[in-house]
Amino acid sequence: MKLTVYLAGEIHTDWREEIRSAVGDLDVTFTGPVTDHAASDDCGAIILGSEEKKFWHDRKGAGLNAIRTRKAIADADVIVVRFGDKYRQWNAAFDAGQAVALGKSLVVMHGPDHAHALKEVDAAAQAVCETPRQVAEILRYVLKGDVPA
């Protein structure tokens, strides 16, 4: 078996790389959003033309990013959504909702401080965890049926 895993959510820490390293030789292909914050924010204005109003600047970027995100989520077997501590990640919650609407398997990762705020998102997930290592172990179990020693 092979999995395609979309890694959604916060872009300010190296959690994606931690998961990639921890899965080792598992047959997993990872996809995700553009994690260069400036590129993600400004892509619409750079490609389609600048805007005087921030709303339209952001709207253009959001539209282009949505094309990438929709395709990647639709093609993924598992969606992992990481909610970080520093910023409100409305986009991450939206990605989780898209995953659920498409019937995708959802793994949510966040610290205990977000448990109450994310209770509805957590309830829709097949697994809720706190660390990249746990995500890797979930993927190992799904692919191999192995549990950590």
Results as ranks from 00 to 15, higher is better:
residue 25 D to W: 05
residue 60 K to G: 06
residue 77 D to H: 14
residue 67 I to V: 05
residue 96 A to R: 13
residue 145 G to N: 04
residue 82 R to Y: 14
residue 115 A to T: 15
residue 120 E to R: 15
residue 74 A to W: 07
residue 46 I to S: 00
residue 3 L to E: 02
residue 78 V to Y: 02
residue 14 D to I: 11
residue 68 R to K: 07
residue 59 R to A: 14
residue 78 V to G: 07
residue 43 C to P: 01
residue 29 T to E: 06
residue 26 L to A: 09
residue 126 Q to S: 05
residue 50 S to E: 15
residue 52 E to S: 11
residue 99 A to R: 07
residue 118 L to Y: 14
residue 91 N to I: 05
residue 34 V to Y: 01
residue 87 Y to P: 00
residue 141 Y to V: 05
residue 10 E to N: 10
residue 38 A to D: 07
residue 93 A to G: 15
residue 37 H to G: 07
residue 82 R to L: 04
residue 139 L to V: 06
residue 70 R to G: 01
residue 22 A to G: 10
residue 55 F to N: 07
residue 23 V to Q: 10
residue 21 S to C: 08
residue 46 I to G: 02
residue 111 G to V: 04
residue 129 C to D: 00
residue 135 V to S: 08
residue 48 L to V: 01
residue 94 F to E: 04
residue 37 H to W: 05
residue 32 G to R: 05
residue 117 A to L: 11
residue 90 W to D: 02
residue 130 E to I: 05
residue 52 E to P: 00
residue 23 V to M: 11
residue 12 H to P: 00
residue 135 V to D: 05
residue 82 R to M: 09
residue 67 I to G: 00
residue 73 I to K: 14
residue 39 A to I: 02
residue 35 T to Y: 05
residue 36 D to N: 15
residue 144 K to Q: 00
residue 36 D to M: 08
residue 63 G to E: 11
residue 74 A to H: 03
residue 37 H to A: 13
residue 76 A to P: 12
residue 48 L to E: 13
residue 45 A to C: 06
residue 15 W to N: 11
residue 140 R to P: 13
residue 88 R to K: 09
residue 20 R to D: 00
residue 101 A to W: 09
residue 66 A to T: 05
residue 74 A to L: 08
residue 52 E to N: 10
residue 87 Y to R: 02
residue 69 T to L: 12
residue 6 Y to H: 13
residue 3 L to S: 01
residue 105 S to E: 08
residue 86 K to P: 02
residue 33 P to Y: 00
residue 25 D to C: 08
residue 60 K to N: 10
residue 80 V to I: 12
residue 118 L to P: 09
residue 15 W to C: 11
residue 47 I to K: 04
residue 107 V to F: 15
residue 8 A to N: 03
residue 148 P to C: 03
residue 142 V to N: 01
residue 125 A to W: 01
residue 100 V to S: 03
residue 34 V to D: 11
residue 143 L to V: 08
residue 78 V to P: 04
residue 114 H to E: 06
residue 38 A to P: 00
